[in-house]
Simulated scan of single mutants.
Amino acid sequence: MADWITACKLADIEAEGVIRFDHGGRTYAIYRSPSDEVFCTDGLCTHEAIHLADGLVMDYEIECPKHSGAFDYRTGEALRMPPCVNLKTYRAETDGTDVRVCL
Rank of each mutant, 00 (worst) to 15 (best):
E77M: 15
R100V: 11
S35I: 08
Y28Q: 05
T27L: 07
R100F: 02
E16Y: 03
E16W: 00
C84Y: 14
P83I: 03
H67T: 06
L87C: 06
M58C: 11
G17Q: 11
E77I: 14
H51L: 15
D59Y: 10
A2C: 01
M58I: 15
M1C: 12
E77L: 14
V85Q: 13
S35L: 08
N86F: 04
L52F: 01
T97F: 11
R32S: 01
A29E: 00
A78I: 06
T97A: 15
R20T: 13
G24P: 02
L44G: 06
G17A: 11
L10A: 12
I62K: 00
P83Y: 00
D36P: 03
E61V: 05
Y73D: 05
G25Y: 11
C8W: 01
V85C: 12
F39A: 03
G69H: 05
M1P: 08
R74E: 02
K88R: 15
S35H: 10
E48P: 02
A49I: 05
M1I: 04
T41F: 07
K9Y: 04
R74T: 11
A70Q: 15
D72F: 07
S68V: 08
H67P: 09
A11K: 13
G24K: 09
R80V: 14
L44C: 06
V38F: 04
V99R: 00
T94H: 07
D54R: 10
R80N: 13
H47G: 13
V57R: 01
L52K: 01
D72L: 09
D36R: 01
C102L: 13
I5N: 08
C102V: 01
E61N: 09
E63A: 11
C8G: 04
E16G: 03
T75G: 06
S33T: 10
D95N: 15
D36I: 08
A7G: 08
A53M: 00
T89H: 06
K9N: 14
